[in-house]
Write a protein that binds this DNA or RNA. Sequence first.
RNA 1: GCCCCUGUAGCGCAAUGGACAGAGCACCUGCCUUCUAAGCAGAUGGUUGUGGGUUCGAAUCCCACCAGGGGCGCCA
Length: 588
Amino acid sequence: MFEAEQQLITQRIMAYCSQQGLPVPVLQWTWIPFSGQWGISTSFFQIAADEARREGKKVNIPVRAQEIAQTIALFLGTPAGFERIEAVRGYLNLYFSTAEYTRRVIDTVLDQKEAFGRAHRRNERVMVEFSQPNTHKAFHVGHLRSAILGDVLCRILDSAGYDVVRTNYPGDIGLHVIKWLWNYMNYHKGERPEKDITHWMGDIYAEASRRLEENPEREAEVRALYARWDRRDPEVVSMWQETRQWSLDGFNAMYDLLDIHFDRYYFNSMVEHPGKEVVDELISKGIAIDGRPDEPVIVKIDELLGLKQEKYRVLVVLRSDNTALYATEDLALAKLKFNDYPDLVKSLYVVDVRQSLHFQQVFKTLEIAGYTWADRCQHIPYELVNLPGNVVMASREGTVVLLEDLIREATQRALEVVEQKNPELSSEQKLAIARAVGIGSIKYPMLSRDNTKTVTFDWQAALDFNGQASPYIQYAYVRAGSILRKAGNAVPGSRLPEFPLSPVEIELIDTISRVPNEILRAAEDYRPLNLANLAYDLARVFNDFYNQCPVLQADEPVRAVRLRLVAAARFTIGNVLGLLGITAPQAM
RNA sequence: GCCCCUGUAGCGCAAUGGACAGAGCACCUGCCUUCUAAGCAGAUGGUUGUGGGUUCGAAUCCCACCAGGGGCGCCA
């Protein structure tokens, strides 16, 4: 928020250095550590080191850096907008003139409100594919990470100024679907899901797996059914369409609960045949080697690239019996996306880390085939959600926590707390709060650790609403709203705080002012974690403020400034929660 | 055999190459007649897996090793 001042000072320092014959620095500004004061900081170690190297002298770098910092502090005096300047241990610290900057930060937030933190539009389109659930199967907590991560990535990219296409890619065909249909036709014909659709669909699939495991000889029936599907037997196709829709309805109900939405659906079944066309193209271009009917169609990527060490290895693009693989379909899907949106600057795939090699192979193959957009495809890998003891969630093993069960439990637990704390609210209000808290508690742990780290799910931790968790942040938001309500929701007009601010007030304003940059950083690195941390920092600092600085009881002009600060903090926390896909409730 | 990820407090995690590695959970001691205690204050807790290197400066970058997880021709 202070780029203009920063740039001005950078220029003055650079001019001074070149005038004095010092190496011209590339200055990197950071905030000053050790809270309680507020400003920007840069160091001069690099200049001192460059100078020593240039002159071939052996000097004590920290001492020389401090000398330079001191001379520059003297040269700068106290620049406009700053209260104090100091040279400390090789660092130059510039402290903001608190009153002026406080007013600026608060005014900016209250002026922009819900838009605070959002960057200007870039007119650049990004596609994010995420979630990719399999129809005819259960949706468990392990599937949740892609959905939550992808959704939040979309929110962050949107806020950073990109036009985002939210894309889902359900696995609506494949052996799992045929197995399901086989079981349904033989044992459940005519049944329809009543409630908990996804749960019910998952049960029928699990039952199918069990039956086939107990009676392996019946696999032949499944193969026969797959053949009927391949012939597009009308009875099979219509049953597939109907049952597939049940799954999609079930997913939509869950996406609604989770506040996750899509602009565009690509289905696995859509790219089966186009995939085979891409394979033909690869063969005719001499990229793929056709070993059919005894061997599959393969692309020897390392060989094509002339790599000595194996890196991309060999990609199988079509089975020897002409049936499609994931790779077949992903080749076509990538093409389809750029066909539909030729202006994509990025085509992102939020898929678990085990498929890293697969995506590298697919993207590299497309590049070799001459598709210039191939380098705009990028896999965003994330680690799995496991159960304690490093147990992988797998429907077959029965080691799953179903999303529906988790949502129900978390909401129920939150409802108990609301009942106790706010018995006077209507049951609708209570349920809405319980939903917000319960869903937030499910989402936050998936966002507050790095994408590359495994999340271990356990019920106790998932239902613990204390500490660094979503309810803590939501509660800070509610408290801020509560103060404003008691003040009659009347936020005073802009003013300069002409009295000393307390350290917690300064820290709160400081943290608020960092939001716009943190959003850009999160978007650049595809890392929601930055914002999950920032949301918590905001809440923690606000709670400090809440406990130390009375607002309603304060005398003017302190009261007016604090009311404005509370309003600004509330918008900021609400906005960051929004980026995390977490609802900010009005009461708790 | 080749490649990727992870290793930080008892536990699970955080930390733009920068100043003193930080919060949470658990444990202990306090704080509700005061803007909601889903909160706050205080106490305990560290050779950042090991050994080298680069750098003025390394948890962070490079190399080697150790430990755990994952991926490597017709699974998805």
